[in-house]
Nucleic acid binder design. Structure first.
Lengths: 168, 168
DNA sequence: CTCAAATAGTTCGTCAACAAACAATTTAGT
DNA sequence: ACTAAATTGTTTGTTGACGAACTATTTGAG
């Protein structure tokens, strides 16, 4: 069967040669993990590049703003909630929010019901910025998987879903 | 068709509701990207955790050592080659190599044929460390995809390969 | 009611990444 | 052969992440 090859096949072949016969090495696992890493690394690189031209607005800023816009209770969250959502420490979130506030994309207001808490809300400019970038982001995601037909995308999800369920 | 669902299905459903009818949103793309991110994030978290107990040996150190051991021309490379392989700047690689050298896992020697270059080689201790951790790493990779059968892994690679080729 | 414990957010000190400037060396045009 | 350009690795200054210590506020046990 002369299937068409990609760059990862070469990597796996080299790797297999080195581990020749060692049952600890699973070529199909190595291939799948490596390919997923490759696809997401390309996406990541493009996402970052998309924000490089912007003044005072980074990929991290977008990520934070996104977490805020996507909250179940929309357009209002505390720094701790956002930190958990984005998986950074509260300390880092303090810095991120300071930047976004300085850029006029969010407001920070102490909650009058519990004066330890801070309520974070997007400004209109923040909502507009998110709206703009979320569209571009979806286009980039679709481009990453442009090699697959609709039917193949469904098959891919069926397999990935099973893998995810194996972990949950 | 009452397929079995995973956590990502909920995310996609919420997302689809928000973008109701908007053709810019592609649910199967969103699902596939999100699932790949989830799987690799779990792997990443576990990899990092596996090195937390170690004194003076981090995930980054392993990554660098790994790049060195995997060079086509094995067990010898220049800092620039390693930097490109790991995708960090040369400046960062200088710091990483200094750490590995301090830990006695590599040596740095100026190339007598071209005195601008530095040849990096693993010590025996470095090779032993890599050998140990690469086995554990493969076990973790296989565990990430334990939900899939061998046949499904092949199918997954067929689809991912096509996606990768779409980018190459 | 009072005071210790818990909680929310910020500040501080450290670490590693980056980009840009730099020093040393090699390559190439004339 | 000589010098300008390119290449290789390191140094420097800045940035953002982290954990731990800290401040302010709320909760709860007696």
């Amino acid at each position: 069967m002369d299937r068409v090859h990609d760059s990862v096949d070469e990597h796996v072949a080299r790797w297999a040669a080195r581990w020749d016969g060692n049952p600890a090495f699973a070529p199909e696992v190595e291939g799948a993990i490596t390919r997923m890493q490759l696809l997401l690394r390309v996406k990541n690189r493009r996402d970052t590049a998309a924000f490089l031209g912007e003044e005072d607005f980074t990929r991290e800023d977008y990520e934070t703003l996104h977490a805020l816009m996507v909250q179940p209770y929309p357009t209002e969250a505390t720094p701790t909630q956002l930190a958990e959502s984005v998986r950074v420490t509260k300390a880092s979130m303090t810095g991120r929010l300071a930047r976004l506030e300085r850029a006029g994309l969010i407001t920070r207001e102490t909650d009058s019901d519990n004066r330890r808490r801070v309520l974070v809300r997007p400004t209109q400019a923040g909502q507009d910025a998110w709206d703009h970038y979320v569209h571009e982001g979806m286009r980039r995601e679709q481009d990453i998987l442009r090699g697959l037909t609709d039917k193949e995308l469904v098959q891919l999800n069926t397999l990935l879903r099973k893998a995810v369920r194996g972990l949950e």
